[in-house]
């Protein structure tokens, strides 16, 4: 009896302890379940899933970094619509498209930097700062477009969102490039190292003469950058900009990170895992769609999933912390 309990405990720990394993297991589960649904495993559908996942995975890069530093970014839904709205309005005003796109990305970066300044220098809590900035951007998008959709992108642009090269959609390639760049940055550059350190022990960062504030501002700026790219990608896929088309991404990006093992308590999480989490979320939405369920029901499932995963995550961390505490007393005792 004890042995089997121990074994299940070990299995549980192995799965929950290693995020990559867990993510793959979950994706496998989703796919297995979906395999029972006709049309899910069709190549075109899978490519579609990845296409949809790309709009989640790209902003998730920034959200991952924010969560590593014990923060969060809820402004993704705002930037995803505000940046392309500015782009299309400028383009319709006669500005060459390349410049418009550049402007759009710049706007994303500025929005991100604003978030960073509010959080790091003014001292506003990350969730409310990004929630409010996201809402402001959503509001501005509605003002510009008078609450409705705005179209008018150049023909080549919509090709990016919907077209493929050698059978692989451009969206997927863009996602791969962004994720690769983000992953390399976080895992292999000195800045990434410092970001992880910041999420674990801010005092050390300060002691080493680095500025936690500058790091935070940069993190959110990068988040804005990727959100803008995702926004352009989405509007390219849909050929339009509508203020509400970004709404689901606010929670989807966070869910992707959590699914990919990024902890709400900071210090851990990787870009690749979050991207895999994004694929999982997109796959789930896709499967529910194919089953004929309304998007709002998808929200029901997604909301429950998030709460469940976060609850498990938090409970595990609490147990770990309690174990460490008693450990500490034991050691002090032994000395």
């Amino acid at each position: 009896m004890q042995k089997s309990v121990l074994k299940t405990k070990e299995f549980f720990r192995a799965v929950s302890g290693r995020p990559l394993v867990r993510t793959l297991v979950i994706i496998a589960a989703v796919c297995a379940a979906a395999a029972l649904i006709p049309n899910f495993l069709k190549f075109s559908n899978l490519m579609n899933v990845l296409r949809q996942a790309s709009v989640i995975a790209i902003p998730a890069i920034g959200v991952t970094m924010a969560m590593i530093t014990k923060g969060i970014d809820l402004s993704t839904s705002g930037v995803i619509v505000f940046a392309p709205m500015c782009v299309v309005v400028l383009y319709r005003g006669g500005v060459p498209f390349f410049l418009c796109a550049l402007c759009g990305i710049l706007i994303g970066i500025l929005a991100g930097l604003l978030n960073g300044i509010l959080i790091a220098r003014v001292g506003v809590l990350p969730f409310i700062a990004t929630y409010v900035s996201g809402t402001i951007m959503l509001g501005l998008t509605m003002v510009i477009g008078n609450g409705g959709s705005v179209t008018g992108f150049p023909k080549g642009f919509t090709q990016i969102g919907n077209g493929s090269v050698l059978g692989i959609p451009w969206s997927n390639l863009i996602m791969l490039v962004c994720v690769a760049a983000g992953a390399l940055f976080l895992a292999k550059t000195k800045h990434g190292n410092r970001i992880y350190a910041l999420g674990n022990n801010e005092a050390v960062i300060r002691m080493e003469g680095l500025s936690p504030e500058k790091l935070l501002i940069a993190i959110y700026g990068i988040g804005g950058f990727f959100s803008a790219i995702a926004g352009l990608l989405l509007s390219s896929q849909l050929s339009t900009v509508h203020p509400t088309q970004g709404n689901s991404y606010q929670l989807d990006c966070v869910a992707a990170c959590i699914l990919g093992g990024t902890s709400m308590l900071g210090g851990s999480g990787t870009v690749v895992n979050s991207a895999l989490g994004a694929v999982g979320i997109a796959a789930m939405r896709n499967a529910l769609n194919l089953l004929g369920l309304h998007p709002y029901v998808q929200n029901l499932v997604l909301g429950s999933l998030i709460i469940f995963i976060v609850a498990v995550n938090v409970l595990l961390k609490r147990r770990e912390r309690r174990q460490q505490e008693s450990f500490h007393i034991r050691r002090a005792e032994n000395g």
Partner: peptide, 20 residues
Amino acid sequence: IPSFIVTLGSGMILTGLAQL
């Protein structure tokens, strides 16, 4: 769990319920 995450998630569940 931090309340903003709980209520973000529960908001989704509630709107889904409402639609359902």
